[in-house]
Amino acid sequence: MDIVSKLSSYAIPTIFLFILAAGMSKEVKVYDVFVEGAKDGISTVIRIIPPLVGLMVAIGVFRASGALDLIVFAVKPVTSLLKIPSETVPMVFLRPISGSASLALLSDLFKNYGPDSFIGRLASTLMGSTETIFYTLTIYFGSVGIKNIRFTLVAALVADLVSVIAAVWICTVVFGG
């Protein structure tokens, strides 16, 4: 599985080369466009500050009080069957519901276990491999007035479940459990 880590280290330099070359060939003023676009990064981060404060406080309270340990203990029989480390279980449940909540949780896990621990790496993979299902379905179907979404939610949840199982498997193979 050396190839997976090779791909990881080449991905960003490659996309830089590719995009800059594409920009130059189209005579785009690459630096000016870059600086203009980078401003969006600031507003994106500022937009997530208020939800992040609210949700990180909730997660902090949940952990410090011992409530998190209760939940983790309660779901242990199911998660050990799927070989999911119980520390990452809240991630599995929050990810499809809210992007900022799972972001807050990710940061909380990094604080407690470190980003380079197995739990940190698995949580990163879980975070990156699915989108917020309920939000996306609500916005997209709502925009055209669809009421009966048929099997869409089921299929999205199947994909989500598969991504969790795949994430646990590939992280165990690449990073060792």
């Binding site: 791909l7 280290s9 604080k111 380079d116 993979t125 990156g128 491999s129 598969v162 991504s163 994430a167």
Partner: peptide, 24 residues
């Protein structure tokens, strides 16, 4: 968070999302 290698999870994320997309 001070990771030594922040990008090392790109590959595992690809594998997991490709599996999810195929399943979907």
């Amino acid at each position: 968070a001070g990771s030594k290698n922040p990008t090392e999870i790109i590959g595992t994320i690809w594998v997991a999302t490709i599996c999810a997309s195929i399943a979907g």
